[in-house]
């Protein structure tokens, strides 16, 4: 474990908590893409199947349980608890356009052709595009509340910190996980446009920000 990966995991946790608490306290999920949250729950489900088969560390196990629980709680709030505030007219991204290529690629490009490895690869590729429905929804509604922007900022920051972690691990222990690195770079690139707008607008107190 290194400081970059720890900071990344904390940024990820903060992002998930920001969104969950926003929905819970405002008792509304307006402007939130339920599809993205379902995809994230699917990412954690397919990536953390080894939760019961391999023990890495207490931190690793605890964080997996926390991420699974919080992501399913978020999906529950959106589709069950506060479903009448769910904005289904604007959450119209065709997720099959993401799932089909990701499933195909995870069968083509993986470390070993075993169910666990293919599911892990699927989760890595899916995570890189899981935010698309949310970004699409923001372009459709024309703006995002500032709290949603903070969520996106920490979510994008988490994988950017993981990239630094991978550089660090490559130079200190020769660790190189090609699938995770390539996918993580693609994922972070999707946020670049948002990062620019976030820094130039949201941090200047503009509150609402609209993606082009």
């Amino acid at each position: 474990m290194n400081i970059f990966r720890l900071a990344g995991d904390m940024s990820h946790l903060v992002a998930i908590l920001i969104l969950l608490l926003k929905i819970w306290r405002s008792r509304s999920c307006a402007g939130i893409s339920g599809k993205s949250q379902v995809l994230f729950a699917l990412v954690f489900t397919t990536r953390y199947l080894d939760l019961f088969t391999s023990f890495i560390s207490a931190y690793n196990t605890v964080m997996k349980v926390v991420f699974l629980a919080l992501s399913y709680a978020t999906v529950y709030l959106i589709y069950m608890r506060f479903r009448n505030s769910y904005d289904s007219e604007n959450d119209t991204f065709r997720v099959e356009f993401l799932l089909v290529p990701v499933i195909g690629l995870s069968f083509l490009e993986n470390y070993s052709f075993t169910p666990m490895e293919i599911l892990w690869t699927f989760s890595i590729f899916l995570e890189s595009v899981a935010i698309m429905p949310q970004l699409f929804m923001i372009t459709k509604t024309g703006e995002a509340e500032s709290i949603t922007n903070h969520y996106l900022f920490f979510l994008g920051l988490y994988r950017a910190l993981y990239i630094v972690n991978w550089v660090w691990r490559y130079h200190t222990e020769g660790f190189f996980d090609q699938i995770a690195v390539v996918s993580g770079v693609v994922q972070t690139i999707f946020y670049c446009d948002f990062f620019y707008l976030y820094v130039t607008r949201v941090l200047r107190g503009r509150g609402k920000m609209s993606l082009p």
Binding site: R5, I56, E173, F176, A180
Partner: peptide, 10 residues
């Protein structure tokens, strides 16, 4: 390098 199959990252 260390084995990427050792999934020690979240």
């Amino acid at each position: 390098g260390t084995d990427p199959n050792l999934k020690d990252e979240l």
